[in-house]
Amino acid sequence: MGGKDEYGVDLDALEEVVRELHKVLNFMGDAKSTSEHSTYLPKGSLGSNFSEVSELYGAHNDVRANITSVMKRVDALVDAFGKKSAKVRDAYQDAEAENSVKM
């Protein structure tokens, strides 16, 4: 079947990529929410009356901000890749449908 100028695309595989990326985005949303909202350290939870206490709270806030930043960047990357994958899948589906009509 087909000559050297023909191509084949596994649309099911592309659909699976899109589905898996949506799963990753859902997981990332949960992790991002946890990093932003479930890592609060109330004053006194690390102890008190020692010189490093403010440094510990500051370090915690810095790490929390870094994790949130990384999560947002990864989320944006996965979202962009998912949208591009869906767009490619749709274009191939349209081309396949168009070729079927021509035959």
Rank of each mutant, 00 (worst) to 15 (best):
M1P: 05
M1Q: 08
G2P: 12
G3N: 10
K4W: 03
D5L: 12
E6V: 12
Y7M: 14
V9D: 03
L11Q: 04
A13T: 09
L14K: 04
E15W: 02
E15I: 05
E16K: 14
V17S: 04
R19V: 15
L21G: 13
L21T: 14
K23P: 01
V24K: 11
L25Q: 10
M28K: 10
G29S: 13
A31Y: 03
A31I: 10
K32C: 03
S33Q: 11
T34A: 15
S35K: 07
E36K: 15
H37P: 01
S38W: 01
T39L: 14
T39K: 08
P42T: 08
K43Q: 12
G44H: 05
G44F: 02
G44C: 10
S45Q: 07
S45H: 06
G47M: 04
G47D: 06
G47H: 05
S48D: 15
F50C: 08
S51K: 12
E52K: 05
V53N: 05
V53Y: 00
G58R: 13
G58V: 10
H60P: 06
H60Q: 12
H60C: 12
N61Y: 02
N61W: 01
N61M: 13
D62H: 06
D62N: 11
V63S: 08
R64T: 09
R64F: 01
I67F: 02
I67R: 00
T68K: 08
K72I: 02
K72M: 02
K72T: 06
V74Y: 02
V78P: 03
D79Y: 05
D79H: 08
D79R: 13
D79P: 01
A80I: 03
A80F: 04
A80T: 11
F81V: 15
F81P: 00
K83R: 15
K83F: 01
K84T: 04
S85K: 04
R89V: 05
A91C: 02
A91G: 05
Y92D: 05
Y92H: 14
Q93P: 00
Q93K: 12
A97R: 04
E98W: 04
S100T: 08
K102V: 11
K102S: 06
K102F: 03
M103F: 06
